[in-house]
């Protein structure tokens, strides 16, 4: 504050014309700087996308020629995408990923909504302490529990099956429980009173009054959980086998030539096919992702 106060205040009225000309020049210089910075950042953030696309469209020979080889556009190998799908059973991996991500999204959303409703609306001894624990579990690193869970599941024969995803889904996610609780807590009491007067039990109140109101948050939860499960690498890598694993694992290790070396161009094409659904979902539902990012940030 002191530095601000001791500064000479700008004198807007004195020699007005000269000052405004100078400030206009300054503003122009500033906006030129802003545009240059934006263009540079666009290049930095966008370049890897461009490069993977160029690699996916190249022949192995072009790749061998170095970076310049990728910039020859006379011989684009669109066929790489076809080969990426046919050479390995990409469709099957795609199906596995789709199944697991959908399963996770639906189960997690359903149970998080129910639990969030309980924390928002049903009073009981101990519920506040429990909610503190819910928030605290968000701080537990996922990986610190994943490896021990893997040890446990391997003892009871759940490794190699999709059951762990069912269990994780059914138990909900702390973050989603938090989002649902915040949303439900803001719904006016009168609505619930009316339902109770009409003779609804808690479950009917939840299903008929609260769920229909929470459509945006349900969609947010489905999208976030789906993209999270779609992008998850470590869990399928630890818990599944090569023949029932997800696309995330397959693109890292399935594209091999007979000698067992990775085929870079096909891997690039396969990776593009793998990220495409995530990007499409994001582009279509951008505002849901952003609004959920916001509500998490506002929590502070």
């Amino acid at each position: 504050m002191t530095t601000m106060l001791t500064r000479q205040p700008a004198a807007p009225t004195e020699n007005g014309a000269g000052g405004s000309a100078r400030s206009r020049e300054k503003r122009q210089r500033q906006s030129a700087f802003v545009y240059i910075a934006i263009v540079v950042c666009l290049a930095l953030f966008g370049a890897p996308f461009l490069w993977i696309l160029l690699t996916a469209l190249a022949t192995p020979q072009q790749l061998g020629e170095g970076a310049g080889g990728l910039l020859r556009f006379d011989n684009l190998q669109w066929n790489n995408f076809v080969e990426a799908v046919t050479r390995v059973e990409l469709g099957a991996y795609f199906g596995n990923s789709l199944f697991l991500a959908t399963l996770t999204a639906v189960l997690t959303t359903a149970s998080s909504a129910i639990v969030g409703f309980a924390f928002a609306r049903i009073r009981a001894r101990g519920s506040k302490a429990l909610f503190t624990i819910v928030l605290a579990t968000m701080m537990i690193p996922q990986i610190a529990t994943l490896i021990p869970t893997y040890m446990m599941f391997s003892q009871v024969g759940l490794v190699g099956t999709y059951w762990p995803w069912v269990l994780w889904g059914l138990s909900g996610s702390a973050y989603m429980i938090f989002l649902f609780r915040q949303f439900f807590a803001a719904i006016p009491l009168e609505l619930e009173d009316a339902a109770i007067i009409d003779g609804c039990g808690w479950f009917r109140t939840f299903v008929q009054i609260f769920l229909p109101l929470s459509r945006p948050i349900i969609l947010t939860s489905l999208l976030l959980q789906f993209t999270w499960a779609w992008g998850d690498y470590l869990t399928p890598a630890l818990l599944l086998n090569q023949d029932n694993t997800t696309l995330a694992v397959a693109v890292t290790n399935a594209y091999l030539d007979p000698q067992g070396n990775g085929i870079t161009t096909l891997q690039a094409a396969g990776s593009i096919l793998y990220i495409l659904p995530a990007l499409v979902i994001f582009l279509f539902f951008q505002r849901y992702f952003i609004s959920s990012a916001l509500s998490s940030g506002v929590k502070g």
């Binding site: 953030f45 993977i52 992008g231 890292t252």
Partner: peptide, 25 residues
Amino acid sequence: VFFLPSVVPVVATAIMWRLVLNPDA
């Protein structure tokens, strides 16, 4: 465009950057 990289799955991020950082190509 600035936000997009943060929604790319980690596997794809690693593969992309291996291509960008490849010593030869």
